[in-house]
Design a binder for these strands. Structure first.
Ligand SMILES: [Zn+2]
Ligand SMILES: [Zn+2]
Ligand SMILES: [Zn+2]
Ligand SMILES: [Zn+2]
Lengths: 167, 167
DNA sequence: GCAACAATTGTTATTGTATAACATTTTATG
DNA sequence: CATAAAATGTTATACAATAACAATTGTTGC
């Protein structure tokens, strides 16, 4: 996961070679599932593969389309169940502002969701800013509020799209 | 809006007297609408009133139920149009993590959305932590990302519900 | 007042997102 | 292999949001 000091190189550019990202996500998932004695079944793997294939968030029905075989696409509940599993294991995050899903950049560590979302190319970057996490926790504490989960979604324009607009 | 140094008194407790909160929200809305020469029509006022009546977020269809008269409830689009207006004027915020709506605690100032949401009593507190806002902006800048809108939704347990669980 | 126009509301239909309930199949365990 | 648990299949439904167009209400200048 990007710690925003080296983030400039890490925001997914439209042209970057993505094969290694996707492969390493699948690899990590298999390893972690083995460790935890949970099963990365065919459906679950298929959904994760589809999500990991892109740095843009995928909607549930978009995933369904990509799962479609000769007999047409599976029922919605199929993808939602796979997503529930993948989110429980921390392999996938849900972006509430988009009703869409993105592969986790760092599935090992338990972490709050913090995302930059480009409104133009729809690329998503997950980041983890300690200052931000600390500010949230302190704020909550001041209200005697005990935190379960935090959601930070920042929408705007990525550097590449900002440049493109100036041309 | 709470600036989390005095937040302990401000998280809405289940038993607090709410009439003044709701009344002042409606009052402020009327004043601001007059200033801006926009119309707080009957439907809009009704929707705002329903939302302001509670410190828990209201779903669109929940609002529809409460709008129901002898002829049944109005069409969904009625409430969504009112919500669009109320959000544009800054009287209401949408909570993406709940697909629900809450009255703004400080409709004067333009501000990013930051909320504490109790998973138990479902009460919502809007807050504005400058450190948090700054951290988000700095993080985005480090990624050369220009921010349009930020969304911070923190779910957990409020103080009252935490106490209740310990009994 | 009233014509002309803009804003708001009404009506019907549709798309998108997500879950409930229950049957069947697959996998792990003794 | 019998049993139980986990995962998948099937059908139906609930909830969230928008599209397209008609009717009504409010505003403005004459
Ligand atoms: Zn992550
Ligand atoms: Zn972009
Ligand atoms: Zn607000
Ligand atoms: Zn509570």
């Amino acid at each position: 996961m990007a710690n925003l000091h080296s983030a400039i190189e890490l925001f997914p550019t439209p042209d970057h070679d993505h094969h290694s990202c996707a492969a390493s996500i699948l690899e990590a998932a298999e390893r972690i599932c083995a460790e935890r004695r949970v099963r990365l079944t065919e459906k679950r793997r298929q959904v994760l593969e589809i999500i990991a294939k892109s740095h843009t968030a995928a909607g549930a029905y978009e995933i369904l389309e990509k799962m479609a075989g000769p007999k047409g696409r599976p029922a919605p509940v199929i993808v939602y169940r796979a997503l529930d599993f993948l989110m429980a294991q921390g392999f996938v995050h849900r972006l509430a502002s988009l009703n869409a899903f993105i592969a986790c950049a760092n599935p090992q560590s338990d972490h709050g969701s913090q995302f930059l979302i480009c409104r133009d190319c729809r690329a998503v970057m997950e980041f983890s800013n300690p200052t931000l996490g600390k500010a949230i926790h302190e704020g909550a504490q001041a209200a005697s509020f005990s935190v379960d989960a935090t959601m930070v979604e920042v929408s705007g324009l990525c550097a590449a799209c900002a440049r493109a607009q100036h041309e």
